[in-house]
Design a protein around this nucleic acid. Structure first.
Lengths: 195, 195
DNA sequence: CACACCTATTCAAATAGTTCAGTAATAGCG
DNA sequence: CGCTATTACTGAACTATTTGAATAGGTGTG
């Protein structure tokens, strides 16, 4: 349903091939609407069939031929209508890791710690990638300047949401690691370790 | 895939019917693994078939007969194995609203503001419900006491993650509303409104 | 020069998730 | 008494998503 509009929104940045889109989805849109390359190619086919995007074939010198897609007026219009409508579906988070954490209290603490460290590292890695995208978007301007003056602020603001999300993810892991420390070595009433 | 383990993790709290599980998923597990009642009933059937949960039929006086499910030893064990394994799938967020926000810069600002207000109200409502679950979990203890001494801390910690998530959601909406204000009435170099 | 990885796309099959509808009984409201 | 809501569950059809594999040339590394 919404993949359609996610693709149209991605094409607001300009013409792109299926492959390029799959990269864009990887680094920024995956934040709120993940999609595999296969999904994208199918959706692009459908959107082109419906006249919401236009395709042109570009033969390349030393690369396979690619097809570049761009928004049509009809596509831009449908996206505008969608974006002004009330949101139908609430946010859905699917996180296998948090299922494991829900069940953590029956599991070897060392294994839990390993999971937490891994997740934390992953969140910090994603954060670093987001920060690079952010620098590119700001392009030398300060955040305030950009938010006041840029033509488009949507991409920056959704990216900021992703940055907060990953930062809080990392912080959560750190907090849980601290909690586990406190449970491994319980404290007496005066704060000194027991046992 | 993971719905299986989400159901097993939910049954760590004790015996429950499909209907009761659907309520549990609504208020707390939906935070990281949403599931409709239909999905749950199907999954419970499968888990019972595989011997990971045990079902018993409980005829009721003034209600339809219900089936109560509880973890078997096999189920508890498989959940333990799953929870100690490295996480396969990264977090997937699907958020129609953020697609709209990505495309906000071509849309009537009044409509965007309405979406933001709606989302903010929704996040604050969810936050309030989470806080009530939190009070129930703490049951008079302070957070520190609970995290040090409780038998299980998993449910509290995943709930805390949900609380942070919704709080940041609401804050994001407030920030974007402020940004939109700044763009409606751009400031001059000395900080006074222009026009 | 072998090997892995990148660009660029397509096809088929399997799994997961959503939607709509329905059954059936009780409770509470005006 | 009719209306709506709640408890409790089932079935079928549909849509969306994931996975695996295949094709095919190019680029970089040791």
């Amino acid at each position: 349903m919404s993949l359609k509009y996610a693709v149209l929104a991605a094409l607001l940045e300009g013409e792109a091939s299926g492959y390029e889109l799959s990269k864009i989805f990887d680094v920024s849109l995956a934040n709120f609407w993940p999609a595999t390359p296969q999904q994208l190619y199918r959706e692009l086919e459908r959107l082109a069939g419906d006249g919401l995007i236009a395709a042109r074939t570009v033969p390349q010198e030393r690369r396979p031929t690619k097809r570049l897609f761009s928004l049509t007026e009809a596509g831009r219009e449908q996206l505008g209508v969608f974006a002004a409508e009330p949101t139908r579906r609430p946010t859905a988070v699917r996180d296998e890791f948090l299922i494991k954490m829900q069940a953590m209290d029956g599991v070897d603490p060392a294994a839990v710690r390993a999971l937490l460290e891994e997740r934390r590292a992953w969140a910090l890695g994603k954060l670093a990638r987001y920060e690079r995208v952010r620098e590119r978007l700001l392009d030398g301007r300060t955040e305030e300047e950009h938010l006041r003056e840029a033509d488009r602020v949507g991409p920056y603001l959704t990216l900021a949401a992703g940055i907060t999300f990953e930062r809080e993810n990392a912080r959560w892991c750190e907090r849980v690691l601290t909690v586990l420390d406190g449970r491994r070595a319980p404290m007496g009433p005066a704060g000194q370790p027991l046992g």
